[in-house]
Design a protein around this nucleic acid. Structure first.
Lengths: 197, 197
DNA sequence: GTTTGAACTTACCGTTCGGTAGGTAAATGC
DNA sequence: GCATTTACCTACCGAACGGTAAGTTCAAAC
């Protein structure tokens, strides 16, 4: 299978899994969206679980690459962390798909057999906690403290991202737009406040 | 149907919906867990969607009641907010079920027909933003700013809560226990830092 | 110019899904 | 004491599910 064919299949599968969840999408539905039969998809990925795994694996690769890029571009570890978090906040507001997919995976993976599929998060999280301990005032924090901080900040972003569709229903487009507009500034203030201790 | 029978049915349905999601649970599976046939469940709730709706409605009632209790017990609005957030953090770490269910609902409700089922969050969220504006330094914040703050703090809690099963897989029980232990303190520091501006 | 293998296809299969129809047995109302 | 309602049950139904089997088509390899 050509590389860009594969990308196209994964794009569609990723979008649908994000929107409806693993159990909410059939392979036939994904194939339909692509103009194929479900057997064509099964031919390429073996079964539904493997297709889902391929989607997650690509996502995790992109994730780590993004983090590595920022690490390479910015020597100051404290600024690395801050700029990474702000970049993620901006990214996640613009495109909610991947946040939703990751959130679904957090909710579901305990039940799926190959839990291995999510352990890829470990190096990513460890890189982040390493960055925390490079921040002045946090050099003596233990693993648990650094991790709790990271998770609280990632949570602040992700939760909002995931909620956006619902918030449109609750508040309407205009009000949500103004909330969105004030989000990055608020979040930056939160990051600054959290890191300064 | 007797009140406590209904509670028992809703308890089981809530636990399973939280664990597997709407599409991941069949009414037969819920009924099995209760020692009934699926037709008995359908008799009580009409259809699957209505059963799910009843679960959400009960949850939202409990939610608002909890918030009202704290408002009644504590006159200082600033302390109300803080103690509510800390109480939720403690609550959510102890029992992850309801966080998971709400998260799933955030992810799915856009697709389900009766979006009305989640708008119940609106008064709850408005009460919270009202509390924010009673905090010194936040009296002149606009709706959007207050809301963004609330969501960032709720997100910090909820994301961690939802992630716990996965984190056990990544880090093991012992390390997760130490993260859990440091979480409330970290979160209190985050709340203090966020409110002080 | 034949072989091979990838990219699909149609045709199924067994299972499970949500939901309906129609019944029974026990409690409740009058 | 009879009628009605409630709480279940068994027996189905059509549709959709994930997956297998067995081709067909077609381009590249040798």
């Amino acid at each position: 299978m050509a590389g860009d064919t594969r990308e196209k299949l994964l794009d569609t599968a990723e979008a649908l899994f994000a929107e409806r969840g693993f159990y909410g999408v059939s392979i036939a539905a994904i194939a339909d969206e692509l103009g194929l039969t479900k057997q064509a998809l099964l031919h390429h990925f073996g079964n539904k679980e493997k297709l889902y795994g391929a989607v997650l694996q690509r996502l995790s690769g992109d994730f780590e690459r993004e983090l590595a890029d920022i690490s390479a571009a910015e020597p100051d570890a404290s600024k690395q962390l801050k700029s990474y978090l702000l970049a993620r906040a901006a990214d996640v507001l613009a495109q909610t798909n991947r946040s939703q997919l990751l959130m679904r995976e957090l909710l579901d993976n305990k039940r799926r057999a190959e839990a291995a599929s999510t352990w890829y998060l470990k190096p990513y999280l460890e890189t982040l906690t390493g960055m925390v301990r490079a921040v002045p005032g946090w050099t003596h924090a233990d693993d648990a403290e650094a991790f709790a901080l990271i998770y609280q900040l990632l949570g602040a972003i992700t939760y909002f991202s995931v909620s956006q569709p619902t918030l449109t229903g609750i508040f309407g487009d205009e009000h949500l737009a103004s909330i969105r507009a004030s989000f990055p500034g608020q979040f930056e203030a939160l990051v600054d406040a959290a890191l300064r201790r």
